[in-house]
């Protein structure tokens, strides 16, 4: 029996990607376009959204705005075509030692890392914009489960909080065969890492990377696995979290 070359079978499916303008989100968009998927992309930077849209104008719908704005979410939910999956890649990281962690910064980080993906998913689901047999992927972080770091109380806890959502709604949405999973990447070379280098010295970053058996990851490393989770080849996988970290958590 010969295997169909199109193992993933995600061409012509429609996926909504948040945080599409950089890092992991952008890499996922680029990969899915190679598989001829349709994309609904969200981000705050219009020119960056257009860069993706211009790669395949017929295949991409772009929404430019802030997911912490309820009106923006409402607009997406009202006007988007039905989707076969979501990747929640929008998120921010700030280094704030617990001693000076303010409610304002907790709110800021939770608003985008936790409340926004929940609100977006919940609205899409209740307005029946998520097709049966869809796949929802939350990009969490190893700091939410295995290894955190100084200054990451707010970020790390916002990522752990996603596990409760994943576990619970995977049960609730199973009746529609909608699967819900999360990926917990280790340190990946993105703008978020560049931002970290504003706060943490270059030498400490090198020191940190040496603690990764396979070094830091690339956005493509996460995108590749995300594509599998979006694909119906993973149809029996739900309520799970996947650590993708170059072996860091093992040390």
């Amino acid at each position: 029996m010969r295997m169909n070359n199109d193992f993933l079978e995600i061409s012509n499916k429609t996926f909504l990607i948040t945080g599409a303008t950089s890092g992991i989100g952008k890499s996922i968009c680029e990969l899915l376009l190679k598989f001829n998927s349709n994309l609904v992309i969200c981000g705050r930077r219009t020119e960056k959204l257009n860069e993706i849209k211009n790669k395949a104008p017929q295949k991409v719908i772009a929404y430019s705005g802030d997911l912490t704005d309820n009106g923006f979410i409402k607009n997406i939910v009202d006007t988007t075509p039905s989707i076969d999956g979501i990747v929640h890649s929008a998120g921010i990281l700030k280094y704030i030692p617990f001693k000076v962690l303010s409610r304002k910064n907790l709110n800021l980080i939770y608003d985008i890392n936790y409340f926004a993906p929940i609100e977006l998913t919940q609205n899409l689901y209740s307005k029946k914009k998520i097709n049966n047999d869809s796949s929802i992927v939350f990009i969490s972080s190893i700091s939410g489960i295995t290894k955190s770091a100084v200054g990451l109380a707010a970020y790390s806890s916002s990522k752990s909080a996603l596990f409760g959502i994943v576990k619970t709604i995977s049960i609730e949405l199973a009746k529609n065969r909608i699967r819900v999973n999360s990926i917990s990447p280790g340190m990946v070379r993105t703008e978020m890492l560049d931002g970290a280098q504003d706060v943490i010295s270059g030498s400490k970053i090198i020191e940190d990377e040496n603690r990764y058996p396979l070094g830091y990851g690339t956005p493509e490393d996460v995108a590749n696995f995300t594509a599998f989770l979006l694909s119906s080849r993973s149809k029996w996988i739900t309520g799970s979290n996947y650590i993708i970290d170059g072996g860091f958590s093992c040390i």
Binding site: K94, Y95, I96, K99, L101, V150
Partner: peptide
């Protein structure tokens, strides 16, 4: 130390609404 630097940056953000880079 680096924790002092990190805490200082966060304090400045909290108290003065100014975000400085490490540099």
């Amino acid at each position: 130390d680096s924790l002092a630097a990190m805490t200082l940056l966060a304090m400045i953000d909290n108290e003065y609404d100014v975000v400085l880079t490490g540099e």
